[in-house]
């Protein structure tokens, strides 16, 4: 296991760090709330969705890295976190490739 593990005592960001991450999460929440009312379709369709998800991913990353201590965790923990999102992506992508290509081209009904 990693030598940066918990028991060396530096497995967290300390009190100010926690408050900092908390502030980022709060700001992110408020920002995502207000930005959802802006009409960003003029930039490109779906820009609102992209922005909202980008903020959500950022917030998630902070929670995982610092609140859940992934930043100090062994490689295996990183791997399992990444793998679960990879598998989610497989489920999303391979399901959606069906829905997005139904009735296309020569097979259209």
């Amino acid at each position: 296991m990693s030598d940066k593990h918990m028991e060396t005592g530096e497995g967290h960001i300390g009190y100010p760090g926690y408050i900092g991450v908390f502030t980022i999460l709060v700001v992110g929440t408020i920002f995502t709330y207000f930005s959802s009312f802006w009409d960003l379709d003029s930039i490109f369709p779906g820009a609102n969705t992209l922005l909202a998800l980008a903020i959500a991913f950022t917030k998630m990353t902070f929670v995982m890295l610092f609140f859940m201590h992934v930043y100090w965790s062994p490689r295996l923990i990183w791997l399992s976190a990444v793998a679960s999102f990879f598998w989610l992506a497989i489920m999303f992508a391979y399901t959606m490739q069906d829905y997005f290509t139904r009735g296309l081209g020569v097979f259209s009904v």
Partner: peptide, 9 residues
């Protein structure tokens, strides 16, 4: 965001 916010614009 997925349930409450998307489409609010």
């Amino acid at each position: 965001p997925l349930l409450y916010l998307l489409g609010r614009h």
